[in-house]
């Protein structure tokens, strides 16, 4: 249970990190809190030549707030969000999601950017931030670009990041005061990675109604216009089960039990949002 030998670098700035990430002569992995990568390294499933620790880069712990958005550096931890050490623009939605990730010891090191870049389908942020319509901010040799979180993951552990590109932050749009949010995940053991996730945001003031079925074994299933889920009825009413099932089947989720569990999570997320 010891990793293979690797070299370790801890750059002080973004440019140095991106330069190391772009090295073609070695297998290079970025590491932040290492709460997902660490187990893989210990099991020797991942055998890098060079580990680039990005947690000394001050820019990646930044918090920028504008009138309508919040930008969190990628090295902000789940516990930072849970405890309110960073501002919240989501009416408590992100704090609640953060508090439900794994265990406190993991949340004290695991980061929001690391979770997204790792692209585990069962992790929380990829589903929650997809539902919130967040943007991932990415830096590479060619400068900065943005990727919608909902299209960041391309498959299990695979993201749209190019080799050498580093996820440096996420931008979360401010929800209206009247926005409703629901998030429900199914785990057999508290704190384990989810078996199914439902996430739902209804923010009529901004004209946004989104839903996500997550922990699908691959990319999250995103309903950019979740109003369509309600079969012509008002958002928050009964979900058109056939519509959801067809969407899941088209997403590669053919098993009836799997569909049932995911549907139940979505239904509970919607109920949670419209309960108050």
């Amino acid at each position: 249970m010891k990793p293979v030998r690797f070299d370790y670098a801890r750059p002080a700035d973004l440019a140095a990190a991106v330069a190391l990430g772009g090295r073609g002569d070695a297998v290079v992995k970025f590491i932040a809190g290492g709460q997902s990568l660490g187990p893989m390294l210990n099991l020797r499933l991942v055998q890098p030549d060079l580990l680039v620790d990005i947690t000394a880069i001050a820019e990646l712990k930044r918090v920028d707030q504008t009138a309508d958005a919040l930008i969190l550096g990628s090295c902000i931890t789940h516990a930072d969000i849970e405890d309110g050490r960073v501002p919240d623009v989501t009416g408590g939605a992100m704090r609640a999601v953060a508090a439900g990730i794994a265990y406190r010891a993991v949340r004290n090191r695991g980061t929001v950017g690391g979770s997204l870049a790792h692209a585990d389908p069962s992790a929380d942020w990829i589903s929650a931030l997809s539902a919130l319509g967040a943007q991932a901010i990415v830096h590479g040799a060619r400068g900065e670009r943005r990727i919608a979180v909902e299209s960041l993951m391309t498959g299990v552990f695979e993201s749209g990041l190019e080799p050498g590109e580093l996820l440096t932050g996420v931008e979360i749009l401010r929800l209206s005061p009247s926005a409703r949010w629901g998030y429900y995940k199914h785990c057999r053991k508290t704190g384990e990675l989810a078996h199914a996730i439902g996430a739902y945001l209804d923010d009529p003031e901004r004209g946004v109604c989104r839903a996500v079925i997550g922990a699908t074994g691959t990319r999250p299933l995103v309903f950019g216009d979740a109003a369509a889920l309600f079969g012509g009825g008002a958002p928050g009413g009964a979900i058109d089960r056939g519509f959801a099932e067809r969407a899941m089947a088209a997403h590669g989720m053919a098993d009836a039990i799997e569909q049932q569990i995911h549907f139940a999570c979505l239904r509970r997320a919607v109920a949670q949002a419209h309960r108050a």
């Binding site: 070299d7 370790y8 670098a9 801890r10 750059p11 002080a12 140095a16 190391l20 932040a32 809190g33 290492g34 060079l50 680039v52 620790d53 947690t55 000394a56 990646l60 712990k61 918090v63 550096g73 090295c75 902000i76 931890t77 516990a79 930072d80 405890d83 050490r85 960073v86 004290n108 090191r109 695991g110 980061t111």
Partner: peptide, 18 residues
């Protein structure tokens, strides 16, 4: 706790790759 980022990070000097 008041610091941001992974617990234990942010104290060490930069380390260059070999």
């Amino acid at each position: 706790r008041t610091a941001l980022g992974p617990a234990g990070s942010g104290h060490g000097e930069a380390i260059a790759a070999r």
